[in-house]
Design a protein around this nucleic acid. Sequence first.
DNA 1: ATTTTCAAT
Length: 210
Amino acid sequence: MIAKLDSMLLPRKKFLYHYKNVRWARGRHETYLCFVVKRRVGPDSLSFDFGHLRNRNGCHVELLFLRHLSTLCPGLSGYGFHGERRVSYSITWFCSWSPCANCSSRLVQFLKQTPNLRLRIFVSRLYFCDMEDSREREGLRLLKKVGVHITVMSYKDFFYCWQTFVAQQSKFKAWEDLHRNSVRLARKLNRILQPCDTEDLRDAFKLLGL
DNA sequence: ATTTTCAAT
């Protein structure tokens, strides 16, 4: 049992390499996704599962996760006796990259027809989000729109992941600039998710007295 | 100052 559990844990070096939130993440040709699944059956029965995945064979890790979802979340789809959804799940995942445009749109599609699933996404780095009009940025906004909470990982999140998903013998030690990078990325994500329709612009102008 | 990105070779 212990051995099985150990093999589910992420090697220390892999975690540090892939989750490092450096500005120029050269050579990260893999993406890791650490997840926690919570299942609510009755008013107070709560169970718990966790693990990690990485992309394989050209398949992005988010889509791989969706493929595993029915096994991970029994009773997620389908209906109970009286036509009501039977089981509610909440999933939190921590991904080394934010989702690409295609993965975002697939997730949005899935979540729209699965209201009994709540998803919270933490990301270490933002994937192709430099251009103002990038499809990746739009994808993140669509995720927000269907109720996904997307957050940039901070020290406490890396710490939690280290405790939960990593085969470690030592306490988590922050790399140089972890905090600075996290703050920079969080600001960038906020700007991306900031609603910017005309209504809001009008309010902003009013506020500025223009 | 500039650099990368769920590879492809």
